[in-house]
Design a protein around this nucleic acid. Structure first.
Length: 277
DNA sequence: AAACAGGCCTAAA
DNA sequence: TTTAGGCCTGTT
């Protein structure tokens, strides 16, 4: 990878496996949107950014310092996904899936935002998840001006913890409201420490996450993978279950993809959801 | 109109 | 350890 200041933007060049649409639309995040030209604007880690692809480069708004301190890590740009794809190509199916998904990167998202977002995601479709998160941020996040537009940061756990169910009524997120509140309170009063869980083993972190009301296997694994950067976590939703039992049998073992089962999951998920058959 | 959606919880085999 | 039903809400 190479990057250089382009006056208000940073140009990222000589990088393999970085496709904006695949990365943003593969279901791992909910706060990035494309305009009609495929230019993505979104908010993460309390900052707004705009990204566009041009030729083989990606341009991202901001300074070199923004890039080095925030976005380089957020987009996981120091990981060699090309090499990982090769490692994951253990059979014809995976070869196909990883090739189809070339360009996906697992974002290193804010831990609390990931927890809260995937609690909301249960039994919901992406448009509604996005809508709920958008309202949540607009109601309780901080206002951020960017390029003449107004964005709202994802509200902290402390902020949410101070609310009651009635406060969350505008979200219209139904039974998930109490899950959000109890998770926020657990984080706020340090009953659970997401930062230290990121340093713990996946098994331990998973157990702690599942102790939260409203967090089961699927949500816990999504938080591990997208929030705590545990690349061995393997979220299984209905699509994954179908795809895996079709290709590897009813009782499959994700460790065949070790140590990148989580990345494998993302390729398989993206592939089975986007190919027509 | 009734079923279903990128789960989870609880109760009951 | 596995299975069934209910749950908020919005969409089809």
């Amino acid at each position: 990878m190479h990057y250089s200041d382009r006056g208000g933007e940073v140009e990222i060049s000589a990088i393999a496996d970085f496709n904006l649409e695949k990365t943003f639309e593969c279901g791992q995040c909910f706060r990035w949107d494309a305009d009609e030209n495929g230019v993505y604007t979104g908010i993460a880690l309390g900052r707004v950014a705009r990204l566009r692809g041009e030729g083989s480069s990606i341009f991202i708004s901001g300074t070199i310092e923004d890039f080095e301190t925030v976005w380089r890590s957020y987009f996981d740009l120091d990981k060699d996904y090309l090499k990982i794809r090769q490692q994951l190509s253990i059979d014809p199916f995976m070869k196909e899936a990883t090739q189809f998904g070339a360009g996906i990167r697992i974002l290193r998202q804010d831990k609390w935002e990931a927890l809260c977002s995937f609690i909301i995601s249960q039994c919901n479709n992406i448009p509604r998840i996005k809508k709920i998160i958008s309202i949540l941020s607009m109601e309780f996040g901080d206002k951020i001006n960017f390029d003449g537009l107004v964005f709202y940061s994802f509200p902290s756990a402390q902020r949410i913890a101070a609310l009651c169910e009635a406060d969350l009524a505008p979200l219209r997120c139904g039974y998930r409201a109490q899950y959000i509140l109890s998770a926020a309170r657990a984080v706020a009063n340090k009953e659970i420490d997401l930062d230290s869980l990121a340093q713990a083993t996946s098994e331990h972190a998973r157990k702690k996450l599942k102790a939260l009301h409203g967090v089961g296997d699927k949500v816990a694994d999504c938080v591990l993978l997208f929030g705590l950067n545990k690349l061995d976590a393997f979220p299984i939703d209905v699509w994954m279950k179908r795809a895996m039992s079709e290709h590897y049998g009813k009782r499959f073992d994700p460790s065949i993809f070790s140590p990148y089962a989580g990345i494998a999951q993302q390729y398989i998920f993206h592939y089975t959801r986007n190919i027509q058959n």
